[in-house]
Each structure stands twice: as structure tokens, then as C-alpha cells.
């Protein structure tokens, strides 16, 4: 490790990066408002605010789950394919019937728990690195989905589509669902023993183990929760599309995008530091950026370039702030 940078690497130096993301969010909103106003448009319209929430809900829910996995020192690359799979499971079981909703949700939960269990067990019991384990599971799901389906399948009844499209005042139902998922995760992380264990395992698995934490169990539970979040996102997307689709998860790039959102929210990729609040900020930041670009009618490829730069730049800023502590675990 090279010499310390100019500032002290004491605990005070770790100004919570999760707060930084909200500052960045405010800056982006202001800048977007200014730019759109210059362009002769209106940015803070009801339509736009609802649009941002609509756009971010699915990614937001996945990213909350991804936050848990990353905090525990793991990560999940299988979420995108799991989203596709659960959207298909949901729409096929519902088959346009209201009576199918409950069994469909139950089946999605079952599939998600199963995938999460497999991820967790492969990582902990077979000691496969999370990157490879979840990539392998992703390939397995992809093969099954692509083998069985060529295009959209199943049908979601009208009543279930309320989840995707309705809103109460300025708040879409999907955003509320996201809020509920985020609140549950926040509660788990900050108010329960499980939460403390997640931070302990992510911080240093060996120390956690020696302190009596059953690290394997924590990682498995975390992956089950992460997969459940992906399943919820699958349900939400199915309700939006009115059917299940084999590419809905990968088209949205939910795997890498959710990881980017989590890291943008100040959670350390190495685990052990960060939280759900930052992730919510990260997802909103990406959605607001998207909305600004849409208003300015910016080329979608240019959007990708800016998004890439923003993600790297943000993490570079966090790395400066956290200083040496961030790299000590190597």
C-alpha cells in the first residue's frame, strides 16, 4: 500500500457516501431542471416525476436485494435471468384469470427461494466464488428459459396490471412496492441481528466466524432475500407487460445495472459498508439522468457513455473520501 493521501484516514474521514449520493441527486435534478428549462421544456412536471418513479421501481427493487448480497461480501449476477423466468412463471400460471394471482405469486416466491438457495449453497458449501456461482446459475436459468420460450407467453389478468400502472396521487403503486421492499431491507439491516451479521460477514468473514456468526447461513439467507427481490421485480414487470417475456430481465440489464446502482449509492463492492438508503439514491440518480436525457432527446448511445462516466466518477469520489480504509482488506 502506498502512502496515505493528504487527508487523515480516521473514522471521521468516512463521511457517509450514502449521503453524498443524495447531494449528487440534488445536483443532477437542479442541473437537469436548468438544462431542460434552457431547452424550453419543463422538468419538474407531474408526468415526469411519476415517470422517474415508474422507471426506477423495478431496478430499485432488484437493487435493494443486490445491496444485501453485496453488503454480505457476495454479489448476484443471476438476477436478470431470474426476473425473466419469474415473469414467465407468473404470467403462465395466471393465464389471464384472477383466480391465478395467488398461486402465481406463491410460485414466483417458490422459484425465487429455490434459486436463492442454490446460489447461497453453491457459494458457501461448494466454496465457489460468488461471481462464478451466480454466473453459472444465470446460464442454467437462461438455458431453461430460452429452451422453453421464443417470445412472450402467458397472460396477466387486468386486475393484476393495476400493480404496474395505477397510481395514488403522484405516487405509482410500483414505487410504493419499491418503498416497502426498501423499508423492509432497511429494517432488517439496521434493527435486527441478521442485519448486523450481514455487515460482519461482509466486513471480514473470518472475524465474523470466529466471533460466532454462522457465516454460511447468513450468506444463504441473503441470497434467498436477493432472489426474492428479483422475483418481485419479475412480478412487477409481468404486470406492466401484461405477459411474461424471456428477455425482459436481460433487456433491462438488471444484473450489472443493479450492481452499478448499489455501488453508486456508496456501498462498498467488497462488502461490509453501505446501506439501502444509498442504493435508493443511486437508482433515483440513474432514473433522473435518464429522464433528463429523454427530455433533451439525447441519443441513447450518448446516454450509455454518460452513464458509464458517471458511475466510475462517483465511485472515484467515494474512493477519495474513504481513503485507505477502503483498500485495506486485500
Amino acid at each position: 500500500m502506498t502512502a496515505l493521501p493528504g487527508h487523515r484516514a480516521g473514522l471521521a474521514a468516512i463521511a457517509d457516501p450514502t449521503r453524498v449520493v443524495f447531494v449528487a441527486l440534488a445536483v443532477v435534478i437542479l442541473a437537469g431542471w436548468g438544462l431542460v428549462a434552457l431547452d424550453g421544456g419543463q422538468f419538474l412536471t407531474l408526468e415526469n416525476i411519476v415517470g422517474v418513479q415508474q422507471r426506477s421501481a423495478a431496478l430499485g427493487i432488484v437493487a435493494v436485494g443486490q445491496t444485501l448480497a453485496i453488503l454480505a461480501g457476495s454479489l448476484d449476477l443471476s438476477v436478470a435471468y431470474l426476473i425473466s423466468l419469474t415473469s414467465l412463471v407468473a404470467a403462465e400460471i395466471m393465464a389471464g384469470q384472477d383466480a391465478g394471482i395467488v398461486p402465481a405469486v406463491a410460485a414466483v416466491a417458490g422459484v425465487s427461494v429455490l434459486v436463492g438457495l442454490v446460489n447461497g449453497l453453491v457459494i458457501t458449501k461448494l466454496r465457489v466464488h460468488a461471481f462464478i456461482a451466480t454466473l453459472g446459475v444465470a446460464l442454467i436459468i437462461k438455458g431453461v428459459v430460452d429452451h422453453l420460450y421464443d417470445g412472450p407467453a402467458g397472460r396477466v389478468p387486468e386486475s393484476f396490471q393495476h400493480l404496474g400502472y395505477d397510481r395514488i396521487g403522484p405516487v405509482p403503486v410500483s414505487a410504493m412496492l419499491w418503498a416497502v421492499v426498501a423499508l423492509i431491507a432497511w429494517f432488517l439491516l439496521s434493527r435486527t441481528r441478521y442485519g448486523y451479521r450481514v455487515y460482519a460477514v461482509g466486513g471480514d468473514p473470518e472475524v465474523a466466524r470466529l466471533s460466532g456468526v454462522r457465516t454460511d447461513r447468513v450468506v444463504i439467507v441473503t441470497h434467498v432475500l436477493c432472489s426474492l427481490c428479483a422475483g418481485i421485480a419479475g412480478l412487477l414487470l409481468a404486470s406492466r407487460l401484461g405477459a411474461g417475456a424471456p428477455t425482459v430481465g436481460t433487456d433491462g440489464g438488471y444484473d450489472l445495472e443493479s450492481i452499478a446502482a448499489v455501488v453508486l449509492g456508496g456501498t462498498a463492492l467488497a462488502g461490509g459498508r453501505g446501506g439501502v438508503a444509498g442504493t435508493v439514491g443511486g437508482v433515483l440518480l440513474l432514473a433522473v439522468l435518464d429522464s433528463v436525457f429523454n427530455q433533451l432527446e439525447v441519443n441513447s448511445f450518448f446516454k450509455d457513455v454518460v452513464r458509464g462516466v458517471v458511475i466510475v466518477a462517483a465511485v472515484a469520489v467515494y474512493a477519495r473520501r474513504t481513503g485507505m480504509l477502503g483498500r485495506r482488506r486485500a
Partner: peptide
């Protein structure tokens, strides 16, 4: 350089690079 000097985890550096590259070339 971004990974070592700016201390961005390489997963994020190269993920960002992936977005920038594919966006830029098709732009």
C-alpha cells in the same frame, strides 16, 4: 489508471468502460 490511481474497484471501472465503449462506437 482509473483502477490504480483513482482507486475505483476494477469491476466498476471496466463496467463503466463497457458502457462508454459500446455507447461511443454506436454513437
Amino acid at each position: 489508471v482509473v483502477t490504480t490511481i483513482l482507486r475505483v474497484p476494477s469491476f466498476i471501472t471496466t463496467l463503466g468502460m463497457m458502457l462508454v465503449l459500446s455507447g461511443a462506437v454506436f454513437l
